[in-house]
């Protein structure tokens, strides 16, 4: 016990010494922002144990994962903005590998604790990143979308092991969301607020999109909460009678007719009571920072008159 405490004291002293020095002071550096959809968006989501893949036997492959990034901003602790995105960036993260969004050169080498961005309605003058399709941008603009996903989900037919049940989906989201005060995920107990620009170096911040969030069954979290899993069964069932048309295509409108089963889903008090309401709310959580890092997420689109639940905007 004593030796463990001694080790902790030594470790903390070392951290202290590291924390008090400022290796970034002086000089200029570069901050680059990129985006990536990770394997779940590029390769698909397999069946799994609920965290590694769908808990209910489904697997899924995206055909498109379109995102409109906006207002990427870097500021110091005092809120002084030193760099801001000139115009929105439009990306299809199904396309492989990390894609450059913007590079901010000639920044003073120091810590910038306030990093933020938005995922907002696509606009016609957005800069198309990578080999995203201009026709997709036009579609997003005409429909007032900020995020659009399409793909195909399947699972073995329980009545015939040689067959697959397949459902397609094309979901466009109007959600506009700000991601503020971004910080990296903890590494060795330390999470960095914002970014640290160092002299003569390029620091890269990836605005990661998480393709599995749309399928979470709960947002409740903490040591005492039931673990969150990803599920597709209830989305697939929404296409079937009595609320769906059984055509093999799961629409947002069908999801908005499918009531949440509270023995399966926990909406954590988010608006609405249908699978569609929950999926639309979850669409705001896809944006991340440096892989598993997070930002404070807030709705920025005004709530239209008469709208109570997310599905009300998709009728």
């Amino acid at each position: 016990m004593f030796s463990k405490l001694t080790s902790l004291v030594l470790l903390s002293t070392l951290l202290c010494a590291a924390g008090c020095s400022d290796p970034t002071s002086g000089g200029k550096g570069i901050e680059k922002f990129t985006t990536w959809g990770e394997e779940f968006i590029e390769d698909g989501i397999p069946a799994g144990d609920g965290t590694t893949g769908f808990v209910d036997g489904w697997s899924l492959k995206y055909g498109k994962f379109l995102v409109n990034y906006n207002a990427i901003s870097v500021a110091d602790a005092a809120g002084h903005v030193v760099a801001k995105l000139d115009k929105p960036r439009f990306v299809d993260n199904v396309h492989r590998d990390e894609k450059d969004l913007i590079t901010f050169p000639d920044l003073d080498a120091k810590a910038y604790t306030q990093v933020s961005y938005e995922i907002s309605t696509a606009v016609a003058n957005a800069e198309i990143v990578g080999d995203a399709d201009p026709a997709d941008l036009a579609m997003m603009v005409s429909k007032g979308l900020s995020v659009y996903v399409e793909g195909e989900a399947s699972k073995p037919d329980p009545d015939n092991a040689k067959k697959q049940i397949t459902k397609t989906f094309h979901w466009g989201f109007k959600t506009q969301t700000s991601y503020r005060d971004c910080h990296s995920a903890e590494e060795n107990g330390i999470s960095t607020e914002g970014v640290v620009v160092t002299n003569n170096q390029t620091d890269v911040s990836q605005l990661t999109t998480h393709g599995d969030h749309l399928y979470y069954d709960s947002l409740q979290s903490g040591d005492n909460a039931k673990p969150t899993s990803i599920r597709f069964e209830e989305k697939a069932a929404a296409d079937d009678a009595p609320n769906g048309d059984g055509d093999g295509e799961v629409t947002l409108q069908e999801l908005c007719q499918a009531n949440i089963d509270p023995s399966v889903y926990n909406t954590s008090g988010l608006p609405g009571a249908t699978i569609g309401d929950f999926v639309i709310s979850l669409a705001r959580t896809i944006g991340h920072f440096r892989h598993e890092g997070e930002c404070t997420i807030k709705r920025i689109d005004p709530v239209p008159s008469g709208v109570t639940n997310p599905c009300d905007e998709y009728k």
Binding site: L270, P271, S281, R284, E294, I297, K298, R299, T308
Partner: peptide
């Protein structure tokens, strides 16, 4: 609409 004021969470990260 007593839920409209609720913002958006990240699952499992609290």
């Amino acid at each position: 609409g007593f839920f409209v004021g609720t913002a958006w969470a990240h699952p499992g990260h609290y």
